[in-house]
Nucleic acid binder design. Structure first.
Lengths: 249, 249
DNA sequence: CATGGCTAAATTGTATACAAGTTGTATTCA
DNA sequence: TGAATACAACTTGTATACAATTTAGCCATG
């Protein structure tokens, strides 16, 4: 039931509902804890209940929704501790990926691709203060670096887990990078991040599994600092899904 | 829509379908790679397509099914490497849980519960050769130990991830224990496992996070040995889901 | 005035009819 | 004989009607 039309892939209603709902949730259009009424949402999105319910189920697995015991779903709220832990989980899994990549060895072309990616990031970071445009180029490159590293682990189960763990925006490697754009500490953090990138490639190349793992863990912890900075400064509003974060009183 | 009837909780059709399908898959009644025809399955399980489809979606998220690009789902096949990695992922996440438990500290009652659990396991292991009945008592206690440790980490996101990672039977802490029952090496492995149990409790009590983490990782790796033994011996047939394992030719 | 139970509205869970797409087969043409 | 195409059967995706349960409101009663 997937066909081409006008050169653009027609997506299923269920997928459309999933994307639209995620957009609404991350934009804060639905308050955390709020129950999602199916009929109202059906009217809002312009489709029927069946694909909507499929989307709700997927978003629950994804972690953005939680099941209500008496039936239906509600938008999930995240505490600061939740986000801290989600980042730690990502770091742990990416650390495992780095270790496996180092232990299992990587081919020359793969390593080259990784190095190209780091070089491109280097160019952006060393150009001095980061403009908004620099960040726009940085984020996808950074995402690519992380994706490549996961590829190198050659593990379908690990890929699955990491994709799942990073589906929450605050847990993703790019999660708080956007918030950095307005922070004075941003450049310093990016310089450290870039150092991590270089070190982990080196460790993988030299097949130092434990070292690669430790570096990637520490690398993810930069997001902890970004989280703290964003929570104290005004950067948090830039983060997708910020409305879901329940500040501790 | 959940109600009591005859003192027994009536479960939704969707949940019933999920459990029944999982049973069929793990029992090997459906061959790996085989497409699941909805209409045939509906006849077989005696419900309608709607709850069946909900169950299929959940089982896909759980990892037992994979989506077919042209539509529908197929039973997933697992290579030995997949299972190895899944065990490694579990060990990594449980290691993180143990570290967090140690770092965050545990209350005296919680620690007591954990120690009781270890003591009960100790009693079974030190009673000499393991009978089938001994294993029947061992498995739930072992599962309880692992569950308690996850509780102590006090992290909802981590709990989610670990539950997800252990939903595959071969990745679960009890996955290969049943296969051990007929293996001569079983007692030796259980003695080592018991040593791990004691050590990790000690590390958590003394708030040695890194040590607790390392021990739990090593503990999970016992499953690697069980996997190898089962693949060489005849124990594998005892493992739920053994039919899904694609032996390397 | 508070509380308990009852009724009605609203909401979710399920079944089924219908639409759209995919796959296999047969037929025809090169 | 081979391949390409058209057709038909089957399968999945979607919409909607129906059933069952939850929830909110109201009235009665202590």
């Amino acid at each position: 039931m997937t066909a081409e039309r006008d050169g653009e892939r027609t997506q299923s209603q269920a997928l459309k509902a999933q994307l639209a709902l995620r957009e609404l949730i991350l934009a804060g259009a639905l308050a955390p804890g709020e129950r999602i009424a199916e009929l109202a949402m059906v009217d809002r999105l312009g489709l029927s209940r069946t694909p909507l319910r499929a989307a709700l189920l997927r978003l629950e697995q994804e972690g953005l929704l939680e099941e209500i015991p008496s039936g239906g779903y509600a938008v999930r709220a995240f505490s600061e501790a939740d986000i801290f832990d989600a980042i730690e989980i990502r770091g742990t899994l990416e650390g495992l990926a780095a270790r496996l990549a180092a232990e299992r060895g990587v081919s020359a072309p793969q390593l080259g691709e990784l190095k190209d990616c780091v070089a491109a990031l280097e160019e952006i970071v060393e150009s001095g203060e980061m403009s908004a445009d620099d960040f726009a180029r940085y984020v996808p490159l950074n995402a690519r670096f992380h994706a490549l590293l996961v590829d190198l682990a050659q593990s379908a189960p690990l890929r699955r887990e990491i994709e799942r763990a990073t589906s929450l925006p605050f847990a993703s490697p790019s999660g708080f990078v956007e918030a950095q754009a307005i922070l004075p500490e941003s450049r310093r953090i990016l310089i450290i991040a870039q150092e991590h990138h270089r070190l982990v490639v080196d460790a993988v190349q030299n097949r130092e599994g434990a070292r690669a793992e430790a570096i990637m863990r520490e690398h993810a912890r930069l997001a902890h600092r970004n989280l703290q900075l964003a929570l104290r400064g005004a950067g948090l509003s830039k983060v997708p899904g910020a409305a879901l974060i329940r500040r501790r009183g």
